[in-house]
Amino acid sequence: MNPLSLIRPDRQADRVVPPSGHTAWLTSFTAGAMAFLAVFAMALSLAAGRLADRWSDALERTATVRLSAPEDQMDLQTKAVLEILSKTPGIASARAMTDDEQRALLEPWFGPDLPVDALPLPRLIEVTEADSGYDSEGLRQRLAAEAPGAVLDDHTRWRRPLAVAASRLRLLGLLSIGLIGTATAAMITLAANAALAANAQVIRVLRLVGARDSYIARAFVRRFTLRALGGAAVGTALGMLGVALLPSTDTAGGFLTGLGFQGFGWIYPLILPLLAAGVAFLATRASAFRKLQELT
């Protein structure tokens, strides 16, 4: 059966199958509800993907050495630490952060008027790893021996699980869409089976007058496909509206407020009605031919 034949109107063929009652709204409603849920699953998946990418970017081989020392020794020890770092194989660069940079880091928690000079804040040294990587344990031991106030904060170690978790969340979103599609296929198959069983006499008459299985199946497949397409279009539109009405992302927004589509991402949910129609087409077609074989 050519899927394009579903688009071409065939009023005569459509009329031979009587309008079926509850299976009509059941199919449309199921497709609509599932598309609505799929929009959110897709938004979740895309948001998780962005989060995973962001955290992965942050993992780009960076580390921090936190140096605590009396104020009069701070510059001396900073130089010593930088000296150690410059001689450590696998470290591409290291630099001490300026007071302004440290103030900017603390500003979200303590406000813009933080007197950095008056507080005994540790000096932060930003370390960038070379491609070959470095021996973090060996570096820790050298720092402990030569600059006792310096602590290597290897933050990749706690960010990596978060990035993995975000990746898994993206996969779960995609898996949810797959499950939604499968559930849609199951529901539409049930509805199609019910419609075929309810129209057993119609099928007998059509057979008697020489209708091929493909003709009979097409009458049902076309109807269910178009219903699924219509229902899913409404469900997708409502889902997209729901996502659009979520609070907008801001710098302090975090994950939940970032749950939405961005830019071209808004195009992705538009494929859901087509997917639903495709699922309905395949499910109804398989169901119709199986049922027609049984009704011989």
Partner: peptide
Amino acid sequence: RDDIALTRRRIGV
């Protein structure tokens, strides 16, 4: 099955 359908078009029942 298609052949049978086509054959039935030649037989009025």
